[in-house]
Amino acid sequence: MDVCVRLALWLLWGLLLHQGQSLSHSHSEKATGTSSGANSEESTAAEFCRIDKPLCHSEDEKLSFEAVRNIHKLMDDDANGDVDVEESDEFLREDLNYHDPTVKHSTFHGEDKLISVEDLWKAWKSSEVYNWTVDEVVQWLITYVELPQYEETFRKLQLSGHAMPRLAVTNTTMTGTVLKMTDRSHRQKLQLKALDTVLFGPPLLTRHNHLKDFMLVVSIVIGVGGCWFAYIQNRYSKEHMKKMMKDLEGLHRAEQSLHDLQERLHKAQEEHRTVEVEKVHLEKKLRDEINLAKQEAQRLKELREGTENERSRQKYAEEELEQVREALRKAEKELESHSSWYAPEALQKWLQLTHEVEVQYYNIKKQNAEKQLLVAKEGAEKIKKKRNTLFGTFHVAHSSSLDDVDHKILTAKQALSEVTAALRERLHRWQQIEILCGFQIVNNPGIHSLVAALNIDPSWMGSTRPNPAHFIMTDDVDDMDEEIVSPLSMQSPSLQSSVRQRLTEPQHGLGS
């Protein structure tokens, strides 16, 4: 029994001894940790006062410096006190997940390849973020970090730009207890964004957000305005092209109309020559008939004078003969009235020469109109080809070629109108001259024959008349068809009918 009691006491004593040793060891460790923490804080404070003595007594600045020092320690893998190029590049790629850190790398180092804690602190103090207000930090939280649900907490804590380094380091107390961020992804996102802002300055999105919006609005307005302008120009170009094509079609119709007119003019001239020949034959025939009538009257007179026994018949025959003579005298007077005045042959040749010289100047004017028309046609064809290209319509709308071609078409039409008026006036004037003179002027042997017949020096006439060419005029020349008939041919039928009527009546009387 005593043995059992003793054994229990030994065990209890051993447990108490072991517990005492454990408590003693724990207290010694706590004392050691407290001592090392105090030494670390003293070291940080001493270093901060050495680097930035004016701010070393500010608790907030001291906390920010400690956060900057921890960031530098995080980047300094070899713990030599300086962050070199390789260490910063590795940190950007692995910790901040930048696949192309060239720009960030140059911004961080600049011309200094080794970055110490002092360099990093001075860079942070010179950053724009260091002077941010609470509102600017909240704006950064909303737009860049995209965590607007913590806006009220940031405003309540009055977190300005000075506190940004403390957000950039992993601090459970700061993010969990103070900021009350329960979501781990939110804490990590805030820490990475803050670290990027401390090292490289304010984000471009935050700094140029309004400018970007303004430029976007301006670009949209310019784009819409450009599209509207292109649409208006395209519609104007199509309308202008439609008008130009309509004018061009009018020129083609006028060309065909003048071609038909020239054919009718040539045909009328041929008919005029035929009528002139018929007139000469008719006059000769009338003279022959008059002579035959005179001979017949003389023969009847002689027969009736030789027959004294038939006085009654003779008297009747003499009366008939007197009627025939009276008819012959009237026919002769009618014929003489139409051919009583004949212009000198020299006057006819001079008038024919005048007509040919006028035709020369008319042909020159006509050729100029043809050239203008050809230029207008070529310009229209070029515009047609340009319209078939990809940007042809837009190019035509913004060039002056369309207006130039339109002006050329209008100029050609005006020139053709002048040529039309000149042709109309010339035909009418020479027709009236032919009526008054009674001989042909338009139809003549040609300028060379006339110059030779009148003994004129050929050098006075200049160049010879160009051959009539096919040219274009407007449709108002169609009503000239009825005026192209020679006035002499219009007189011939009346002359034929009057003479024939007077010759036929006596012959019928003789026949009876």
Results as ranks from 00 to 15, higher is better:
E94V: 05
D89S: 00
K73D: 05
E87C: 06
E87N: 02
S64R: 08
D84C: 06
A67M: 12
E87T: 08
E87F: 02
Y98L: 01
R93M: 06
E94P: 13
D76T: 15
V68N: 11
D78I: 15
N70M: 13
A79F: 02
E94D: 06
R69Q: 08
D89F: 00
N70R: 15
R93S: 09
V83M: 00
D84F: 09
A67D: 06
D82V: 08
L92R: 11
D84K: 11
M75N: 10
V68Y: 04
F91P: 14
D95N: 04
E94S: 14
N97F: 00
I71H: 12
A67N: 10
S88A: 00
L63V: 03
S64F: 08
D95L: 09
Y98K: 04
V85C: 08
L92M: 03
E66G: 04
E66I: 12
S64E: 14
F65K: 12
H72Y: 01
E94N: 12
D76M: 15
E87Q: 07
H72C: 07
H72Q: 04
D82R: 14
K73A: 09
D78N: 07
F91D: 15
R69V: 08
R69T: 09
M75S: 06
K73T: 05
N80T: 06
G81T: 12
N80M: 07
L92N: 15
L96R: 06
I71T: 01
L63H: 03
R69S: 01
E86R: 06
V85F: 08
F91C: 12
A67R: 02
N70D: 01
R69A: 04
D76R: 15
K73E: 03
D77R: 05
R69K: 07
E90S: 02
L96V: 07
E90P: 10
S88I: 03
F91Y: 08
D78E: 08
F91R: 13
A79G: 01
Y98M: 06
N80I: 04
L92G: 15
I71K: 10
F91V: 10
K73C: 10
D95R: 06
E87Y: 04
V83S: 07
D78M: 12
D95W: 10
E66P: 08
K73P: 05
V68G: 09
S88E: 05
H72M: 12
L74A: 10
F65L: 02
N70C: 12
A79N: 08
D95V: 03
E90D: 00
E86W: 07
D77C: 06
R93W: 07
V83H: 12
L96N: 11
R69H: 03
H72G: 09
D89Q: 05
E86G: 03
D76E: 08
F65Q: 13
F91K: 12
E90M: 05
M75H: 11
D89L: 00
K73F: 08
A79C: 04
L74P: 03
L63G: 02
S88Q: 09
V83E: 04
L96A: 13
N97A: 04
D95Y: 03
V68E: 09
D78V: 09
D78W: 15
L92S: 15
D82C: 08
S64T: 12
Y98G: 03
V85R: 02
D84W: 12
V85L: 01
G81Y: 14
F65Y: 06
D77A: 00
L92Y: 15
F91H: 14
S64K: 14
G81S: 06
E94R: 15
D89A: 01
E94M: 14
R93I: 13
N80F: 07
V68I: 05
V83W: 05
S64Y: 13
L74H: 08
M75L: 01
E66D: 05
D77H: 03
V68T: 13
L74N: 09
L96T: 14
L92T: 15
S64D: 14
A79V: 01
S64H: 12
R93K: 07
D76L: 14
D84L: 08
E86S: 09
I71S: 09
S88R: 01
L96S: 08
I71M: 05
L92D: 15
V83Y: 11
E66M: 09
D89Y: 00
D77N: 01
V68K: 12
D82L: 14
F65S: 06
D89R: 00
L74C: 12
A67K: 09
N70Q: 11
D78H: 05
I71Q: 10
H72S: 08
N70P: 13
N97M: 05
M75K: 00
G81N: 13
E66C: 11
V85T: 10
V68W: 14
N70L: 14
L92H: 15
N80R: 07
D84H: 09
A79M: 07
D95H: 04
N80V: 07
A67P: 03
A67Y: 11
F65P: 13
Y98Q: 07
V85M: 05
D78F: 13
H72F: 08
D78Y: 06
D82K: 10
E90N: 08
N97K: 00
D78T: 15
V85E: 03
K73G: 08
E66Y: 10
A79R: 03
D78C: 11
D76V: 06
E87I: 05
V68L: 04
S88V: 01
D82H: 09
D84M: 09
R93Q: 15
D82S: 13
S88L: 00
V68D: 01
R93D: 14
D82M: 12
R93T: 10
F65A: 13
L63W: 14
D78Q: 14
H72K: 06
N70E: 10
A67H: 11
G81V: 10
E66A: 02
D77Q: 09
F91M: 12
V85K: 06
F91T: 15
D95T: 13
E87A: 01
D78G: 10
V83D: 12
R69D: 07
G81F: 07
F91G: 14
S88G: 01
A79P: 05
H72V: 08
N80K: 05
M75G: 04
D77M: 06
R93F: 13
D82P: 14
E90A: 02
E86V: 02
E66W: 08
L74R: 04
D89M: 03
A79K: 05
N80S: 01
G81C: 05
M75C: 12
R69C: 00
S88P: 05
F65M: 14
D89H: 02
I71R: 14
D78L: 14
L92C: 15
D76Y: 07
N80E: 11
V85N: 08
V83K: 12
D76P: 11
I71P: 13
R69I: 07
F91S: 07
A79Y: 02
A79H: 06
D84S: 07
D76S: 15
E94Q: 07
H72D: 05
E90R: 01
L63T: 13
G81W: 14
D76K: 15
E90H: 08
Y98I: 05
E66L: 07
N97Q: 01
I71C: 11
H72A: 10
N97D: 01
E94F: 14
D89I: 00
E90V: 00
L63R: 08
E86Q: 05
L74G: 05
M75Q: 10
M75W: 09
I71F: 03
R69W: 07
L92V: 11
N70V: 14
M75I: 02
E86N: 09
A67C: 11
V85Y: 05
V85S: 02
A67W: 13
L74Q: 03
R93H: 12
L92P: 05
D84N: 03
D76W: 15
H72W: 10
M75Y: 11
F65I: 09
E66V: 05
V83F: 08
S64M: 14
E66Q: 06
A79E: 01
D84Q: 12
N80A: 08
Y98T: 00
